[in-house]
Amino acid sequence: MAESILEVENLRKYYLQPRGLFSPFKTEKRIIPAVDDVSFYIKKNETMGLVGETGCGKTTIGRSILKLTPVTSGRVIFNGTDITHLTPSEFRPYRRQMQMIFQDLDAALNPKMRIKSILTEALTVHHKLSEAEINHRIEELLEKVNLKKSKLSSFSGELSGGEKRRVGIARSLAVGARFLVADEPTSALDVSIQAQVVNLLKDLQKNLGLSYLFISHDLRIVELLSHKVAVMYLGRIVEMGLAGRIANAPRHPYTRILWSSLLKKKSQEATQVPSDQHDGRWGVFDFERSYSGCRFAPRCPVYEAKGNPAICSDPANAPKLSDIGNGHKVSCHFPLE
C-alpha cells in the first residue's frame, strides 16, 4: 500500500452567521456546519474525487487543506506533518508542494500582468533562478500544458477559456507542486475544451506523479479521473469508496440519484421522489430544520418507501460512515443493495 500524501481527520468548518439588525450585540449566532466531521486520505499518485451539489461544502474542504480558510477543528496531515496549526511562515514551504486550481478561470491571473510575468513570479517564489533558467523552465512548462509560446506576451483577457485554464495549471506546476486541489477545473469550459483539460490532467498525473483532490459536481468526470470517490451531502460524506464501485454499485440513495440524473438513466426505484416539495431547498442549508438526524432523510426515496422509519429522523441517531466491505463506506441506515 502506497504511502498517503494527505490525510484529513475529522475536519470541521462551521460558519457563524449573524442575523438581524442587532446581530453585533448578540452572543448567540446561528451555526452553519459547512463541513462536518469529514475524514479521508489520498495516496501518492492517486486522485480522490469529491462530488456534491452546490453548497455541500466540497470547495470549503479544498480551501481548508490549503489553509486559505481557518478550520474549526480537525487535522490535516500532509506528508506526515500536521499542517493544521502551522503559522503562515511555517506553512510557506508547504505551499510549494500543494497548489490549487481555482474554479474561476481568471483566478490565477492578475488581469494587469502578462502571462510571462505570471509564470516567472510562480517560478521565483520559492527558488532563486537566473534569467536563462527561468526561460528554460517556462518553455518546459508550456510544453507540459500544450500552450503556444506566442501567448506569453498576452494579458489574461486576451486568452480563451481553455488557454486560461492551461496557464492556471502551468502556474501550479511552476512552484513544483506534487499535490493539486482541482476545484471544478472544467465547469467553466466548453465540452470540447473540457475533454482537453481532463486529458491534460490525466497526462500530468502519469508523467509527473501528481496527486489530486478533484472537486466537481459532475460525477462522470470525477469517476473518469479518480481512483477513489467521496460523495458529499450537506457537509458530510455520505458514501466513499473506489471509483468503480461508486460508479457501478452505489449503495447510498443520494449517489444513485446523482448518477441517474446525470446519465438520464431512469432507474425507477431510485429516482422516484414522490413530490417536488424540496426542490428548492436541496443541497442548501435549511436553517429552520435541525440537522442532527440523517440529513438526507427529507429527500430520501428509501425513507419515503419504507414509510418514514423513525430511525432516519431521530436526531440522536445520525447514520455513521461505516465500512461495508472493500473500503466502501456508506452513511445510511438502509443502504441499497
Partner: peptide, 8 residues
C-alpha cells in the same frame, strides 16, 4: 443549476 435539479 445542480445536476439533480437540472434533470427535474
Amino acid at each position: 443549476l445542480d445536476a439533480t435539479i437540472q434533470s427535474k
